[in-house]
Design a protein around this nucleic acid. Structure first.
Lengths: 191, 191, 191, 191
DNA sequence: TATGAATGAGGCTTCATTCAT
DNA sequence: CATGAATGAAGCCTCATTCAT
């Protein structure tokens, strides 16, 4: 057995870190950031409290890391469909992208909202997310402008609001929300 | 000189209670339920910590009372416009009602969302609010059905989601949201 | 209606005071001194907290007053049978006196013990009661000495201890203790 | 340098826990359960308040643990002398056992009484102790029955009451109670 | 005399974080 | 790298007592 190389350690560190973040995301989303103690996160992740602080400087840092990763995924999903936004089909792709985030990362999405309503908690993430959203909204506004809509900016914002509104209700009572159907209806309304 | 009458005490109690609730609503909405200590609420309300417990059995009870009052106001605003929902004008009244809640009770609305994303916090209020919403949604669904819409239930739910989505963004960055314009656009989309 | 005379007021005060003490004794005995708030005593006595402080300077003063009254009654019961202690019949009277206190004033007796085990609580009463007891013990010791017992002082003390021991168990589980039978057995053992 | 083993932690935990219990027993016995704050216990034990909650879930749990340990010791002392109870010598062993508890564990015994007179405080311990006592009483009753005593059950109970009565007075004023002498006198009365 | 609103000290408990091993 | 004992600040809540009316 040769001693592990530095790279191997790095791999272990990275996966350990991700595992903690995944666990914490689950707990934060399910129970709320404040209601969830570091002790419980460590226990749930199968490690000691001390080790957690080896990977994150604080509970807030852990939250920030989760948020950053989530926002990155958010970006990635959008970039999968990122290109010119001219045709209704392309608009549909955008709408679909929004719904995909709800479908694929429900916990992150839920935590995102939760954090938004707790000023002082991960403010940096809030700002970063809002910027991302603004860019997106501006892209969509261009589409409506091209289409000759009299209120392109508001229309674009409204579309964003709708998706968040649907997400919000989806997390409050998933069983009553038919994402697929709503996706189509929204497209019909905005195309 | 002569001892206070029962009625005088009642007046004191009622106004004090409202004062505390108003203060707490402000703070809860601004800083989040968990981030806001009872000590701060008392200080902000200009009373002692102890007195707060003369009016509410616990911090959670204070929150519940605030939520209950808010939901009552919510009801009242809806009942102001409560009648048959047949014509587009009447639908507009409904939409307007939703926006009025955002406009008139922004703090309550914000707290409502905030609470929604903190499981275990005022669950009873969450349930009560959701029930209120469901009734409303069913009323609106009837309108769309009458109009011959193929997905009346989803359309109605979507309308609710939109209003909440707008509210959500309004509270995150009020300066970027033009409520009046959005109200009209939504009406145009759904009438 | 002529206005009430000062004496009438005094009568009212006295009976009110007694009523409060009786109520408090009940509660203290049932729930313990510390577990029983002034608010509850007042409520239970059908008066306001403020009025209670009109009659007693503090919660401790209320307890002291109850204890003093109880010890007075204790004295009275003993004095009913106070005279020379020469014959076995007279010893029996003493034993009977002890049991009568248990029977007639169970709440006071229970409170007495309870207070004994809480140093700092009504210390004055504790001292006064112990003095009373010592005198009594000395009287009884004379009886045993006269009878030629080799350990009269210890015998007398033991008799006191027994009665308190019986009282103790009687308050812990009254249904298992047959006071009448025990009284006789004790007499047979000591006569 | 190398991390502590599980066993090392176990040793630390065990001794710390005992240390806290010992300190608390001392204070509870001396000052009463309610009069003794967690802060004082921690200070007296030379630890932080927080650490106490690392070992006990609540102040009541701490008390219960102390009581449970005391009752266990009580059992052990009785079991040292546990066997047939036929001869007067064996009865004397029993009586001696009772006195040994007073002598060896005065603080526990005092706390036991103290708790008995505070309803709602460690009720479970009260019940457990009473059961222990009942078994013991039944054993002793057999002895008296064998001896032909007309009231074996009462005699046995009385013996228990006496020992508790002596204990009670011993803790109220130890300097006035000669345990050795009383032990002999009791044996002479009951043999 | 009588009320109960109001106070504030102090109690119990939690929890993010540190650190010796 | 890994542990969990230990800390201490801060949180929620209770309650004896005061006082304006």
């Amino acid at each position: 057995m040769s001693p592990r190389t530095e790279q191997q350690f790095e791999v272990i560190r990275r996966s350990r870190k991700l595992q903690i973040m995944q666990t914490a995301l689950e707990l934060f989303a399910r129970e709320g950031y404040h209601s969830c103690s570091v002790a419980r996160i460590a226990e749930y992740a199968g490690i000691s409290k001390g080790l957690l602080y080896n990977y994150f400087t604080s509970k807030e840092d852990l939250l920030d890391s989760i948020m950053a990763l989530g926002i990155e995924k958010f970006h990635n999903i959008l970039e999968e469909i990122q290109h010119e936004l001219d045709t209704p089909e392309e608009l549909m792709m955008y709408i679909h992208g929004g719904f995909e985030i709800i479908r694929r990362e429900p916990e992150f999405y839920r935590l995102l909202f939760s954090v938004f309503f707790q000023p002082g908690v991960s403010d940096a993430s809030q700002i970063r997310y809002r910027e991302t959203l603004e860019h997106l909204t501006q892209d969509i506004a261009v589409y409506f402008k091209t289409k000759g809509d009299p209120n392109p900016a508001e229309k674009a914002m409204l579309l964003g609001n709708i998706i968040d509104g649907v997400g919000l209700h989806y997390f409050l009572s998933p069983e009553t929300v038919n994402l697929d159907k709503l996706e189509k209806i929204i497209f019909e309304l905005f195309k």
